[in-house]
Design a protein around this nucleic acid. Sequence first.
DNA 1: TAGTGGTCTAGACCACGCA
DNA 2: GCGTGGTCTAGACCACTAG
Lengths: 241, 241
Amino acid sequence: MDSEDLGRFEFRPLYRQVRDKLIRQLADGVWAPGDILPSEVHLAAELGVSQGTIRKALDVLASEKMVVRRQGRGTFVASHDEEHGMFQFFKVVPDAGPRTIPRCVVNSITRHRATPEERDLLHLTDASYVMRIARVRWMLHRPVIYETISVPALLFPGLADMNLPDNIYGFYAAKFSVSVARSQERLKAVAAGAREAGELNVAVGHPLLAMRRLAYSVDNVPVETRLSFCLTDGVHYLAEH
Amino acid sequence: MDSEDLGRFEFRPLYRQVRDKLIRQLADGVWAPGDILPSEVHLAAELGVSQGTIRKALDVLASEKMVVRRQGRGTFVASHDEEHGMFQFFKVVPDAGPRTIPRCVVNSITRHRATPEERDLLHLTDASYVMRIARVRWMLHRPVIYETISVPALLFPGLADMNLPDNIYGFYAAKFSVSVARSQERLKAVAAGAREAGELNVAVGHPLLAMRRLAYSVDNVPVETRLSFCLTDGVHYLAEH
DNA sequence: TAGTGGTCTAGACCACGCA
DNA sequence: GCGTGGTCTAGACCACTAG
């Protein structure tokens, strides 16, 4: 494959280069979610490397949840509409019973200058704008989460006039070619303020789980931050390490 | 290596068998944490498989955080005293500044019949006993976490008379050959009760982060559960997905 | 039966750490 | 310079899926 020069100063293993090339093509939408990729043998011939190298690159992508390998069938682009992808980032689950997809009610989608915190988290400049989505998520027939989502306005043109589905990361990928790959959440227990209390129908001062999330794209660029307030009544946050 | 029979009915890849054999030896304390393992070439010769198979087994163990591989030096038993292991399960970090190891003050170590919840979580029978450790953890010169740890009494003989270090999982491994491999935590925001308020020096009703942890050994057996109450004031719970 | 990914091997060379 | 793990290759055979 293309040696990309600079071999001397910037050593990247072959399988890494293959992985990066495939990531780029995945992000560019060369294959749609759920699509089958060319077979290992085919890719090896096409890129001029051995099957073992392709295999290692695909193994890495599989461990990163970008593709799914199925013995005897082929390698497929991970579809984030699947149940698996749906719950990769959403960790709030009922205390009893199966995981459910929360229903979302959007309060507003507005455009603002980024606050200092948003600029810091999203790596924006002073003049940048963000889109803010305020919404309430329902589970078990109750309002459970009130949250404000901020994204760089430049990355999401026309967002304000769109209808948001419940699975917003699938929507980002489909409409804006923004693929969320990983996220980081910082949790605190706080007392409900007037706004949160009203939206979640509890008394001011009621304990809420505050979650500050920062989501990164496949290119490792921060693309979304959100501040969520969760009423952990009949539900909890599930973390596994 | 030993084929362990049954090849027909229970197919396990060679590298899996190697990994399992090494896991068993690690759990048995054949090598101490921090020790260097035999080299790939040596292990391959010893077990009668190719170096590639050993490599794959070690790669799996590395991904499971059981060993640490260092190019040019060797493969080492993961030492849970290291910073890395220390913070694998402890997700409470200061809002600003570096991660710190919390200091622990043990209130009591007592023996009780297991409650129904403990029996359920730890897979115990009606007649089982548990040891309970109540302690307070300090960070930033303040009491931050009040928690009660429960472990099966049978697995931890003599625990009541021992001094507990700050890093309790390293202690489990060293004294009782119990190696914690993974854990699950369920988080809620709750109002402080009288006990928690007293221990953490806050008002009754103050919002606290309640964490119910269940820890599993390398054999996938639940070996510890704990209920922790955290005052998220200057600290937060960090989750990455 | 054909084609896919999964396992296993053997051997070559590279990057790293250390004496 | 030597031994370690890391990368890359080529080829064999196995297990699974689909037509």
